[in-house]
Each structure stands twice: as C-alpha cells, then as structure tokens.
Amino acid sequence: MARIDPEVFLRLIRGETRGPLAALGRMGLGLGAAGYGVAVAARNAAFDRGLKAVHHARVPVVSVGNLTLGGTGKTPMVEWLARWYRERGLRVCLISRGYGRADAVNDEALVLEENLPDVPHLQDPDRSRLAEIAVDELEAELILLDDGFQHRRLARDLDLVLLDALDPFGLGRIFPRGLLREPASSLRRAGAVIVSRADLVPAERRAWIRDEARRHAPSVPILEARHAPRDLVDGEGSVGTLDGLPGRAVAAFCGIGNPVGFRRTIESLGCRLVDLRVFPDHHPYSADDVDGLVRWAGATGAELVLTTQKDLVKLRLSNLGDAPLRALRIGLELLGDARPLEGLLAGLIPESRPVPGA
C-alpha cells in the first residue's frame, strides 16, 4: 500500500489544496472521521462505565500523553519527570508501546537511553504486562507511561496531557479530517495540562489555549513549558555548546511529528537557516538517504547541519560530507510557577520517602 506524503495530507486537511478533487477528498476524510469518532466515543464510554477491564499496577503510574497526532514534546516531558523523581530517590521505569519500532527499540527510546542511562525503558504493546515486569523484575517504585492518554487499559494515578501551542487542538477535527486522536472534551480526564512550545506563540494565543482547555477541564492546573535548546551532540555522543550559532549558515533536516517546532527552535537561536529537509515521523534512514543528505548538505553551502536527537541516534554520524552534523538537544523547561504540578507529583511519592524541594 502506497505511503501518503505527510505534507500532502496536511495541505489537504488544512484546506490549502484547492479544487473539486481536493474538496471531494476532504468530504471522504470527513466521513472517515465520523466513523472514527463514533468508535473512539464507544471505547471511552466502555472504560468510563467499567465495561472494559482496567489493570492497576502496584506502584503509582504517571501518564504523559496528548490529544493529537504528531509531536507535542512528550519525550522531553518524560525526561523531565524521570529526572524529577530520580532526584528524590525513586526507582523509576519508563514503559511505552514502541511506535516506529521493527525488531528493536524505537528512536524515542534511544534518546531516553542516552539522556537517562539510569532509568530503564520497556517497550511492548501490552503495557499492563510491562508494568508487572517493572515492579517484579526492576523493583520500580514509580512507572512513567509514555504516550499513554489513549491507552486506558493500564490505570494511572496522574494523567498529564500536552497541548502543542503551535496546533493545540489538531485543526479542531477528528482524524483523518483533522489531527485529533479524540475530542478536546477528553481533557476532562486530565490531571494537569501542559502547553508545550508556549514561548513560540504570542501571549493572546496562549491565553486562548488556556481558556479552551479550561472550558473542557475547568478544575485542572494548566502550565506552560518551552523546549529549551541545551547543547549540541555529535554522532559519538560528544557534547558541545550553542556558542557561535548566531548568524551561522545552517541547514537542517528531521523526521519528527512537528517539523515546524524544530524550525522555530533553530530560528530562535539566531541561525541563518538556509534549508530544512523534512522526512516522515520515525523515518528509518537508509544508505541511499545518507547519500542524498550528503549531496543536499553540499549543495546548500551550509557551515553546519543540524538535526534532532531522535534522528541522530539512528544515523550515528558526525559529518555529512564536509559539513559537520550535530543534533540540537532539547530539554523541557516549565514557565512560571511549577508548584501546582510538583504538588501533584509529590503526592505520589511514598510517605517513607523525603520530598526535598517539593
């Protein structure tokens, strides 16, 4: 079955592609979205009414998820949470489904393994079974469930939902007519909402997002965060600073769910972005891809090529031809008062544990 170009799909559902065929295509996607929406509503109702079984882990579970398809910054959020709990002495285990994997761990897992070497990460579609393994074999005291908002079979003590400030509500439509995995009304299940990449939009946009979120979840804390560039990493894992980037001619490529966010982050560093090449999310780079990237990098005349850590962990290269290749490593940074979130997190720490700084 032919793979649909993500950019072509996005232009279609945004209404940027015009003409009778495009209108007919959107109509067909709308019919598909209606059926998908009914299925999602029925599934959620079954869990809400106790008609579907829920597995309860023997330790607290914190889920990080979102409403939309594409990247909202879940991996930096998971990393932030793991560090927060590790600093308080808890044995943490990450579990996830493992999207984009073949017979090995996927790119997010490779990034987390590199950034959190002391935190184990288990991947399998059966996350209830993983929760048992985490407790029995790894002696985990707390489980972080990555991309877990729609996975309701494993009960969680706290649901954190990320909304990407660049497109928080998936064009306001259910997939495939839009990018919503489920309606925005599902935010009522959230324990807290975090608006990611909040620094990349104006204040009035941020206020609108908060108002919309409160309309669906009036009693939950709403926080804002940014993806803060931390450093540059090469294919060997060596770390360099961000010094010298302003004004430098940079080419970039990525295979992530939100390339617009990556572009905005690069531009915020003052680089002169000469070209951005976009691959599908979770793209498995082949030898032909690398050859093409070498030719492309040379043609751009860039002094430096930047990519994401998710992409570089699959390539493990430090150069593309004559151009140095570096990953821009990102860390999540909460904006404003973090105490509402930290209070929720601290409430899951066993009473025998100290809670410094909470």
Rank of each mutant, 00 (worst) to 15 (best):
D5Y: 09
D5V: 11
R11L: 04
L12H: 04
L12R: 01
I13D: 06
P20H: 11
L29F: 05
L31Y: 05
A33D: 10
G35S: 12
G35P: 14
A45P: 01
A46P: 10
F47I: 01
A57C: 11
S63K: 10
V64R: 01
G65F: 06
L67G: 03
K74N: 13
P76Q: 02
C93Y: 05
I95Q: 02
G98N: 02
L110Y: 05
V111E: 02
R127E: 03
L130V: 02
V135H: 08
A140F: 08
L142V: 11
L145N: 09
G148V: 10
H151Q: 14
H151M: 07
R153E: 11
L154N: 04
V161W: 02
L163C: 14
P168S: 09
F169C: 02
G172V: 03
G172L: 04
L179F: 01
A184H: 06
L187F: 05
R188T: 10
A190G: 10
G191A: 13
G191M: 10
I194S: 00
S196V: 02
P202H: 08
E204N: 09
H216Y: 11
H227C: 10
R230S: 13
R230E: 14
L232R: 06
V233I: 14
S238L: 10
V239I: 11
T241H: 08
D243S: 15
P246Y: 08
R248Y: 05
V250Q: 04
A251R: 08
I256W: 00
G261A: 11
R263H: 11
R264F: 11
T265C: 13
E267A: 09
G270V: 07
C271V: 15
R272K: 13
D275Y: 03
P284L: 09
Y285V: 04
S286W: 00
S286E: 02
D288Q: 04
D288F: 02
D289F: 00
V290Q: 03
G292M: 03
A299M: 06
A299G: 12
T300D: 10
A302V: 07
V305A: 13
L312S: 00
K314T: 07
L315H: 00
S318P: 10
L320M: 10
P324W: 09
R326H: 15
R329W: 05
L332W: 07
A338Q: 13
P340T: 12
L341C: 07
G343Y: 06
L345R: 06
G347A: 14
A358G: 02
